[in-house]
Amino acid sequence: MATDTRAAAIPAVGFDRPRGWRALGRYSLLLFVAFLVLFPIYTTIVAALKPGNEVLNDPLRPGPFTLDVLRDAWSTGRLGRYLLNSFVVAIVVTVCQVVTSLLAAYAFAMLDFPGRTLLFGVFLATLLVPLEVTLVVNRRLIDSLGWLNTYQGLAAPFLATAFGTFLLRQVFLTLPRDLRDAAAIDGVGHLGFLRHVAIPLVRPTLGALALFSFLSTWNQYLWPNLITTEADKNTVQSGLRLLASTNLDEPNLVMAGTVIAAIPIFVVLIVFQRQLVRGLTAGAVKG
C-alpha cells in the first residue's frame, strides 16, 4: 500500500542492501509474518466462497466454489442498503468536518478576537472527551430532536472536529499576515481570501483530513447501534453485527457479509493511499 518511492530515487548504498544469508533470513522472516497477517483474510475469503455444508470440511482448502453465499449475504443480509447508509453518513460527516474545520481554523489563525486562546484551548479539550461519556446524553438529545433512525441523527454529533481545526490551523499559521492585510486592502473579504489563497495552500492536508474523517465515521460501532431502531437505517457495521448475531450456524454467510463489508473500504484505501499515509501521520506532527 505504501509505495516505495525512495528506493527508486536514491541509489542503493552498500550498507542498506542485505545480501546472501542475511537477505535470505530477512525474506523468511517477512514471508512468515506476511503469512500470519494474511491467514485470517485467506480463511475468510475461502469460507465466503464455499457452500454451507462444506464450510467445516477442511476449512483451509479452497473450494468447491460458489457465489451463492455472497449473493445470499447481499440480499438477506441487506448489505447493499447498509453500505449505502454508511456511505451517505460518512460522506456527509466528511464534507461537514472539512468545511467547519476550515472555517474555525481560519478564524483561529487569521482573526483577532478576544478570548481566542481560551476558545482554542476549549476546542483542544474536546479532543480528550471520549465518546463513551457523551453517549447517553447525546442519545437523549437526538431522541428529543426526533432524529432517531435518521441520517442527521447518525451524523450530527460529528459534524465538527477539533482535530481537523488544529491540523488546518497549523498550516494557516505559516501564511504571512501581510498577505492577508494586502488582500484586505484590495477589498478581498475573508471568504474570498480563504477560497483563493488559504484553501489551495492546505489542499494536501485537506485530503488527508477528509480520508481520516471518512474512515473514522465508517468504522463507528457504538453510536449507530445506539440510535437505530429500524433495520433500514443500520450502517454496515451494525448490519454486520446483526448478521453475525443471528447466523452463527452459517459461518460462511457471516464471512461473506464480512467480505462484502470490507471490499469498498479496501478500494477506497487503494485509490487514496497517498492521503492515507498523510492522514494517519498528520496526528504525529509536532507542535
Binding site: 447517553v136 428529543s144 426526533g146 445506539l226 431502531t229 433495520a231 446483526l242 448475531s245 443471528t246
Partner: peptide, 23 residues
C-alpha cells in the same frame, strides 16, 4: 415490524427512548 435483534436490545432501546420514540 421492527426487529431489535433480541430481547436484550429491545429492552435497552425501549428504556433509552423517550415515550414518543417508543413503538
Amino acid at each position: 415490524l421492527q426487529n431489535q435483534t433480541g430481547y436484550e436490545a429491545t429492552i435497552d432501546k425501549y428504556i433509552q427512548s423517550s415515550q414518543s420514540s417508543r413503538p
